[in-house]
Computed example of a mutant assay.
Amino acid sequence: MSRIYIPSTGPDNWQALLADPSKHWRTGYSARTLAHCWERANGLPPEIAAMFDGPSELLLALPEHKVPLAGGQRHSQSDVFALIRFGENTCAATIEGKVNEPFGPTVGEWFADPSDGKRLRLRQICDLMALDGVPPMDIRYQLLHRTASALLEAKRFKTDEAAMIVHTFSAARMWFDDFERFAGLFGNTARPDEPMVLVLRTGQRLRLGWATGNPEHLLL
């Protein structure tokens, strides 16, 4: 995987980075909607900026950013990875775009009859997030590995905190209950468009958020 990145000239540049560029690049779906939203913002979309304390600034955004995890060849691929400055702090954030698409399999579904690689990967994720044992079976695995990716990148870039933010364009707040259960792992109560900031037992600071995007981007 190359570590050289070329600046974007517009939303269409994002399409080539998708696993299936023809299937996943559709009006009204998350990949295309997210690309138009972030490109039009020319910085942080306001709903993402609202997840941080005080004035915030986008330093760098990488669409479809891959982070290697233990136990296999398949990386965790975030819709957007962003380095964000707010006040005197910096944050490594993974952004998960959603419209009506689900979060994928639960831990119970993904970890059924697990291979040695899956056991190793889940152990790494739990260690990063300071979770004891296997998470509850109804937690969505995607939320776990996206958060683990943010924590790994925060260490790599030596930022003050990590963040995992769901950037949703669903007026019905589809799948918010999954995010709510995930936040409950840390003893937090999730609320739409309100950030949660916690300090893990590892000492690492983690920010979680559910940010509602402008639905006008669904039409682009």
Rank of each mutant, 00 (worst) to 15 (best):
E101P: 01
P102S: 13
P102M: 08
G104C: 13
P105H: 02
T106K: 01
T106S: 12
T106M: 04
T106G: 03
V107R: 07
G108P: 07
E109D: 11
E109Q: 14
W110E: 14
W110R: 13
W110C: 09
W110F: 15
W110A: 09
W110V: 11
F111Q: 11
A112H: 13
D113S: 15
D113K: 12
P114M: 14
P114I: 00
P114A: 04
L120H: 03
L120M: 11
L120C: 12
L120D: 01
R121D: 00
R121L: 06
R121C: 06
R121Y: 01
R123I: 12
Q124M: 13
I125A: 01
I125M: 07
C126P: 11
C126R: 01
C126I: 11
C126M: 14
D127R: 10
D127E: 11
L128S: 06
L128N: 00
M129P: 06
A130D: 08
L131G: 00
L131N: 07
D132H: 10
D132C: 06
G133I: 13
G133A: 15
V134D: 04
V134M: 15
P135E: 11
P135F: 08
P136I: 10
P136M: 06
I139K: 05
R140W: 00
Y141M: 12
Y141C: 08
Y141N: 13
Y141I: 10
Y141G: 05
Q142F: 03
Q142M: 07
L144D: 01
L144G: 00
R146N: 15
R146S: 10
R146T: 05
T147Y: 05
T147A: 03
T147Q: 08
A148S: 12
S149R: 02
S149G: 08
S149D: 12
S149I: 07
A150I: 14
L151K: 10
L152E: 00
E153C: 08
E153W: 14
A154D: 08
A154L: 07
R156A: 10
F157N: 09
F157S: 15
K158G: 07
K158D: 13
K158H: 09
K158R: 08
K158V: 11
K158C: 06
T159D: 03
D160H: 04
E161P: 13
A162M: 13
A162T: 05
A162C: 14
A163T: 07
M164T: 08
I165A: 06
I165K: 06
V166M: 00
H167S: 06
T168Q: 01
T168P: 02
F169D: 00
F169Q: 01
F169N: 01
S170M: 09
S170A: 09
S170N: 06
S170E: 02
S170C: 04
S170L: 15
S170F: 08
A171D: 07
A171E: 05
A171V: 00
A172W: 02
R173P: 05
R173E: 08
R173S: 08
M174G: 12
M174A: 09
W175P: 03
W175S: 11
W175M: 07
W175D: 09
F176P: 03
